[in-house]
Simulated scan of single mutants.
Amino acid sequence: MPEPFKNLLGPQVAAAMASHLQRAGAETGAAFNAKRFRSLALSGLEALEMKARAQHLCTALEKTLPSDFDSAATVMEGALASMGEIDDATLDSPSGARDDGLAGWAVWPLTEYVARHGKDKAPRALQALHAMTQRFTAEWAIRPFILAEPALSFDTLQRWSTDASPHVRRLVSEGSRPRLPWGMVLKPLVDDPSPTLPLLRRLMDDASPYVRRSVANHLNDIAKDHPYLIEAWLQEHLPTATPARLALLRHASRTLVKKGHAGVLKAFGVGDRFKGEASVALSSRRATVGDSLQLALTLQSTARKPQRLAIDYAVHHVKANGDTSPKVFKGWVVELAAGERREFRKQHSLRPITTRVYYPGPHRIEVLVNGAAVAEAGFELRT
């Protein structure tokens, strides 16, 4: 059984934080009581889930760091590891540290401290987040500043959009996403995303795939509330798209493609309704959670010319109250020749995952071609 994700903020992280913060306090002339921090940090930690652990460790920092924010920020900056790539080994380390300082998940409580206590000293707080995001991410911590000090924050983000560090450039996009997972919703940007658009234009062709993926996710956030803005974005940026930009724009449009948004599908050349016949069959009419089902789809074109098709499928999952809710899964993007008959197969897993709870009952699979339903099949799910 894999180690619970929450243990990435476990006792070893608390010990590493205590050690490096004590060292940094001594180097900067600021007292830090490592023994008290460990006692506060470990008290009740095991019973908490991931995000609550970060907040709990931050509360321990509040009772042990210097009361002056600038001094506290200086100690935390001094406890950070040297600059370097944030690789999987760092993020997965149960100690939350490298030999020379804190990096990875251990930095999350530090960013939380800045978010809680830096609001009255926003320029100094943003300086601290600039350092911290290069060892983990400050995407959640920067959001209160965007709401409280929008002019300062966007001036800073504009400057950071050309920073030498890809981690800082990613923060420009990720930290200002309207609907960031685990982060507070930025309601003003949900209503009007225009302040972030110049930043996204600047970062859209960034050299780092890490940055470009964030831009795609940011645009996908915007698509949920302003689909026609994304349609206009595609019309502007698709004609001169490099392969890297094209991949970004496809990822940015995934929600609207799954919903069959006509303008977005048309922008990618797959907006026309499928001309032909479709049928889908499942490998079994009954399944148990943990099984896999094979989908066998057959398309028969009746068109006189080739058709470019985006083929997805929606699984209508049963919810706790007995209703169903569709989840769309990616299939294929193909060109079907005039009169061509083609078969497609896909293995669909019913294994439990953290983001989906399966309930027993009749489930339905619906095939979508260019956003329109063309065939369906059903199965009974047992737990």
Rank of each mutant, 00 (worst) to 15 (best):
A31N: 10
T255I: 10
R177L: 02
T111F: 08
G378K: 09
E380Y: 08
A375D: 04
Q307I: 13
F268R: 01
L248Y: 09
Q12T: 01
A14Q: 06
F268D: 07
C58E: 05
H218Q: 08
T355S: 12
Y358C: 06
T242V: 12
A47N: 11
A34L: 08
L186I: 14
M50H: 04
K121W: 03
D68W: 05
F274L: 10
G260Y: 00
K119T: 08
L65N: 07
L189N: 08
A252D: 11
A372I: 07
A244G: 04
L48C: 07
A247T: 13
W105Y: 15
A262C: 14
M50Y: 14
A267P: 09
A14H: 08
V280R: 06
T288W: 06
D120S: 11
L265I: 08
V190R: 10
L8V: 15
A164K: 06
A151L: 11
D221P: 00
R364G: 03
K187M: 13
E236H: 12
F5E: 10
P306Q: 14
C58G: 04
H117E: 11
K330P: 09
R341T: 15
R53M: 04
R177T: 00
F32M: 10
L336T: 02
S283Y: 07
L282V: 11
S349C: 04
R98L: 13
M1S: 12
A164F: 01
L350H: 03
S349E: 09
L45I: 12
P193N: 12
A128L: 14
E149I: 00
M184G: 05
M1N: 14
Q307V: 07
A81N: 05
G183Q: 03
A103V: 01
S283G: 09
L102F: 02
V280D: 06
T162E: 14
L246E: 15
R169Y: 05
P227K: 10
R38D: 04
S176Y: 08
H226T: 02
L229C: 13
V334D: 11
F268S: 05
A18W: 10
T74K: 09
K275W: 00
P352E: 15
T355G: 05
P109F: 00
I353M: 13
T133M: 02
P306H: 07
A26N: 11
W140R: 03
R179F: 03
E112M: 12
G78E: 12
L65F: 07
R116Q: 09
S93G: 07
L297E: 11
P188E: 05
Q300L: 08
P166S: 02
G371D: 06
Q294L: 06
K224T: 01
K258E: 00
I353F: 04
A247C: 06
A252M: 09
E62V: 14
R273M: 07
K6G: 05
W140V: 12
L368E: 06
S279G: 13
L293A: 05
T288M: 11
A128M: 07
P198E: 06
S39V: 00
E340A: 14
Q12Y: 04
L48Q: 14
R38I: 03
T74I: 08
R250H: 13
M132N: 01
I222Y: 12
S176W: 00
D155N: 12
G260S: 05
D206M: 02
E174H: 12
T64V: 11
L299P: 10
D100H: 12
K258S: 03
K51A: 11
